[in-house]
């Protein structure tokens, strides 16, 4: 599991990374009420704004941590956005990206580095 300073996590399996927001981010946002997702098939670049996460009190952008193609979005989030709060690292995942360059994973933060940012 790798992290970004935008408080996202990415988990690589084969050439596809699953991406979500961290527990810390979910807490900061409060009750998530809506997630605007990218479309399946969209090409995304590292750092691109690909959607928004809306909570009761705020909205924040969703960034793509990696370069590649969106191969899946978590459709359950639409009917149950609370999953992002309940289980941000599990059932509350947001998108799957098929990476153009799996080495990009190496540029992301380790758990220890990410924890340091949150403190």
């Amino acid at each position: 599991m790798k992290y970004t300073k935008e408080h996202e996590w990415a988990n690589l399996e084969g050439d596809t990374a699953t991406v979500g927001i961290t527990d810390y981010a979910a807490n900061q946002l409060g009750d998530v009420v809506f997630v605007e997702m990218p479309g399946v098939g969209d090409s995304v670049g590292k750092g691109d704004t690909i959607g928004t996460i809306e909570s009761v009190k705020t909205v924040s952008d969703l960034y793509s941590p990696l370069t590649g193609e969106i191969v899946a979005v978590n459709e359950e989030i639409e009917s149950n956005p609370g999953l992002v709060n309940e289980d941000p690292h599990g059932k509350g995942w947001l998108i799957k990206i098929k990476l153009s360059d799996p080495k990009e994973m190496d540029d992301l933060l380790s758990e220890a580095d990410y924890k340091a940012i949150c403190e």
Binding site: V33, E54, K57, T58, V59
Partner: peptide, 13 residues
């Protein structure tokens, strides 16, 4: 409701 769309939260966005 849906206040997060509004100017006092989103500001320039």
């Amino acid at each position: 409701t849906l206040q997060a769309r509004e100017q006092h939260i989103r500001r320039e966005k």
